[in-house]
Amino acid sequence: MKYHRRLPYIFILPAFICMICIHLIPMSLGVLSSFFKLNIMTINNWIEAPFVGLKNYFSVFSPGFGFLENFVSSFSYTIVFVVLAQISCYVLGMGAAIVLNASTFRGKNLVRGLLLFPFILPGVVSITNWRYMFSYDTGMINAFLIKTNLIENLPVWLVGDNAFWAILTTFIWIAWPFWFIVLLASLQTISHEYFEAASIDGATLMQKFRHIIIPLTAPVTRMVILLTFMWYFREFKVPFVMMGLSPSPEANLLALHIYTESFRLWNFSQGAVMAVTLSMVLMLFLALRMYVTKKERSL
């Protein structure tokens, strides 16, 4: 009997140890390093780096040190990036899911598989392809614009304002199939009787969408929004592969900014302060997600 009581803990133990070693210890060290003076000179003997209290937080969040302006800019672009990515992914994912859910043509499964392709491909491959497509001189996008005479002055996509749209487009391409597959699964759980009844009552497509699809997929949508907010907020791969370590400010998302500040400019402590801030934002959303889940269960 005693053995049976212990068994679940024994099963959990390896995962628990891994969590401590891989997450908890490095995270704690990260938080700790935000209170120490850790740079290229002290990293050599980082255990004895001087304790500076909240000085690093002060330098990051006070104007004049050069950190705040870039942090705020990076944070703002990240917020806009996340919101636009979520809206676009929802529109694309829901649109494709509705079309595919309502269709009965042969080869539907094949189309579904093809739509998932960007999600299945290794991210670096997709991102690199997009990078070449956005290239000013040799990119497919500018070549298309020249051929079709759609624009007089060719845009430079990877620098300045356009860099933001370039990373956003690339990211949406990679991310939307996830929304599509989740929303399709959610749509498939809605009984056809609702749609038939609505049709008999003379409901338009828009009315069916608004009064059947949105409310009945809302729990799943809410969960996906909360989850993807946390995932998208720490997006690193797309700006890094497309722009390297020195992107235009418009493409300098927070995760990349923290990485560059820490590992290219050696401001490890200030990088840690920014990472702690990012973690706190994400934790807030994690708490919100847990609250929403709890509330939904109680309904």
């Binding site: 845009p155 430079v156 620098v159 300045g160 304002d161 356009n162 860099a163 370590l245 020195s246 992107p247 235009s248 400010p249 418009e250 560059t260 290219r264 400019l265």
Partner: peptide, 17 residues
């Protein structure tokens, strides 16, 4: 390190815009 690109991206980015 990075100083060169801060300068080039800011100046040339503004020029493009």
């Amino acid at each position: 390190a990075k100083v060169d690109t801060i300068i080039s991206h800011t100046i040339l980015g503004a020029y493009l815009q």
